[in-house]
Structure formats: structure tokens, C-alpha cells
Design a protein around this nucleic acid. Structure first.
Lengths: 177, 177
DNA sequence: CTTTGATCGTCAAAGGTTTGACTATCTCGC
DNA sequence: GCGAGATAGTCAAACCTTTGACGATCAAAG
């Protein structure tokens, strides 16, 4: 039990170190839940950073801009509020991002005949090209990450993540409801 | 095989829908890697949103501010660059956040005797109180999420996440290197 | 029809984050 | 010692995102 120099920790050894210290100071802490939260958050951050820095920024897209193009590509023309819900961001964020995407000729905004408040967002031909090109590279990175796991490990991991996503805690979170 | 109205999709059914459409249009896509990326990103976003909106914002902390306090709490007084590395953000972000934390009396900045460029960050008494109070509530939320899984499922999930975190793809990502 | 409440997209304000530049400082080889 | 290159922290600029407010519009009850 020596005092380790905390400065020399890298992120992974920090997790072990943090769990040990927390358990000593806050005994009510659940160390397994703590490790789960830390590891999940860290991994997701690394993934997004990888996608954004290697795939999207070099193509002139922000991470948010790509997400809007992505849902428009796959879920067809959408009203703005539906694009926001599927992309997991606020209506205001979609409004701001679409301003740039429209200026760059990737998305069109048209009025919805049946509801004059609503705006229908659709990909242009250039937008379709941009998002399919970007997603091919994006999925190549996803494959590079997933390749560290065996197929059955991949299946198990997806199952556990989906179980958390549909859990009562997730329902209570109600992100951007 | 009817044309489903894409507008009515919620996020979970969107994932299935998206994978089906992508497979048809971009046959080189790996649908398992795609589902993994989508699910992991979505879950992490929901987690952070839950933590920030239910625990940290009500206590007057931003998510970034909490992360700085958290690493200072557990890894002791730290030079700014080490705090940045452990918290997974840039040195500039730490510099900006510490400005607020210092103003609020939660963190002190002192010169390092051996290196006049460096700054040593340490929690004040109030900072220690704030971070332990916040982390107790934070871990309670982590426990609420983890409770959806059995103990062995939790162990398996952590193992798979750590395997990805230490994978070659993660090493190549080199976040904020 | 009218009124009341809800919803849509947008805007402004506030804050967080990254990148790149800059100064000050350190380190290492000569 | 000293000079070249690396490093620490900060700043400015740019961008993204959220919240709360707003006007316009819709929908439902009477």
C-alpha cells in the first residue's frame, strides 16, 4: 500500500485508483456501477472523437451536421422536429445546423402544406452523396473498433447495451423530451 | 414489407430501420458494427444527459466542471496538464473551467516550485464537499442504471467495454494526444 | 366562430469545447 | 554556459448546444 504518484496515472489505471479511493471515502458507493459509468463514458468519447476527427471534420462536416444528414438519409424527408428527435438533439440545434447545411447545398427546407408552422427537410443530390460517402468511412471505423471483439462478443455487448437503453432508468431520463 | 412512415419512428425502431436501409444502399456496411456504434453512442448520450440534468446542473456544476473536480478529488493535487489528460479534455478547456471553479471557491491554483510554467490545482474544503456530495448523487444514478442488469451481466459488459477501450482502434484514436 | 391551450421553428443569450497561436519556461546536447 | 527544440498554460476565434422566449399556427371545446 504505497502512495502511488497520481500524476503518472493514465486513464485506465486512473479508473482502478479512483474506485479504490472512492470506496474508502464514500462507502455507500457501488464500485461496479462506478466502473460501468466511467468506462462507458470514456469509450463513447473516444469513439466520437475518432469519428469526428478522422471522418467528418476532414469532409467539412461537424459531428452534429453529420447526424442531421444521417437521419434525413435514412428516414427520408422529415419535419424538423422529427429530425431532432431521431438525431437526439434539440429543435434549436437542428435549426442552427440546417442553416449551414442549406447554405452548403446539402439540405432543402420546404413548407409543409398541411401545417404552415412545420418545415420539411430533405437531402439534395449533393447531400445524399456527402452522407453516403461519409458513412462508408464512418462504418469502416466502426468495423475497425468492432474487430477487437469476436462475433459472439459483439452480439452479447449489443444485447447488454440495448437492455440498458430500454431500462427504467433510461425511460426516466427522457432525453430532450 | 410495407413502407413504414419514417416520422413515427422512435429512436430504437430507427436503429432497425436504419440498418435495413443502409444494407440495401451500401452493401459493404457491416450491420453489426453499425448497431454497436449507434447503440453505444445513444446510451452514453442518455447517461450524460441524466447525470448532468438530475445531479450536476441543479448543484450549479457543469458536466465539464464536475469532471475536473472529480479527477482532483481522486488523484490529489494535480498539475493542469495531468488534470486535462485524466478528465479527457484539452488543456485549454481545463484552463477555462478552472477559472470558474476558482471564482466559486472550489479550486485553488498555485505555482509549482520546480517548474515555473506549471500550475498546481487543488480542491478547497468547499470543493471537496461539493464533489463528494455530487458524486454520491451521481453514483446513485449509476446504480439505478446498472440495476437493470444482473451482477454477472454487469461484469460481462464492463469486460467487453474495457476490451474495446484497450483495442488497437482505441490506441489509434489517441484522443487529445 | 371563438377562445384557450398546445405545438412549431427560430432567435438570443450563455456556456462549453477545440484548435492554433503566443509567451514563458524547461531540457538536452554541445 | 548556451542555443535549439519541446512543453506549460493562456488567449482568441470559431463552432456547437442548450434553455427560455417569442410569434405564428394548429386543435379542441364550447
Amino acid at each position: 500500500m504505497t502512495d502511488r504518484p497520481a500524476e503518472d496515472l493514465d486513464y485506465l489505471s486512473f479508473v482502478d485508483y479512483a474506485i479504490g479511493k472512492t470506496k474508502a471515502e464514500l462507502p455507500d458507493t457501488d464500485p461496479v456501477a462506478m466502473r460501468l459509468g466511467l468506462t462507458l463514458h470514456r469509450l463513447a468519447g473516444a469513439l466520437v472523437y475518432d469519428w469526428e476527427s478522422t471522418v467528418h471534420r476532414p469532409r467539412g462536416l461537424s459531428w452534429g451536421g453529420f447526424r442531421v444528414l444521417f437521419v434525413l438519409w435514412l428516414a427520408g424527408p422529415l419535419e424538423s422536429r422529427h429530425a431532432a428527435r431521431l438525431a437526439g438533439m434539440s429543435r434549436a440545434a437542428v435549426s442552427a445546423l440546417v442553416k449551414t447545411l442549406e447554405r452548403d447545398g446539402l439540405v432543402t427546407r420546404t413548407q409543409v402544406p398541411s401545417d404552415r408552422r412545420a418545415v420539411r427537410l430533405a437531402l439534395t443530390e449533393a447531400g445524399h452523396t456527402a452522407v453516403t460517402d461519409a458513412y462508408q468511412a464512418h462504418n469502416a471505423r466502426e468495423q475497425a473498433w468492432a474487430a477487437s471483439l469476436t462475433p459472439s462478443e459483439q452480439t452479447v455487448l449489443i444485447g447488454l447495451l440495448e437492455k440498458l437503453t430500454t431500462s427504467p432508468a433510461a425511460a426516466a431520463a427522457q432525453r430532450l423530451a
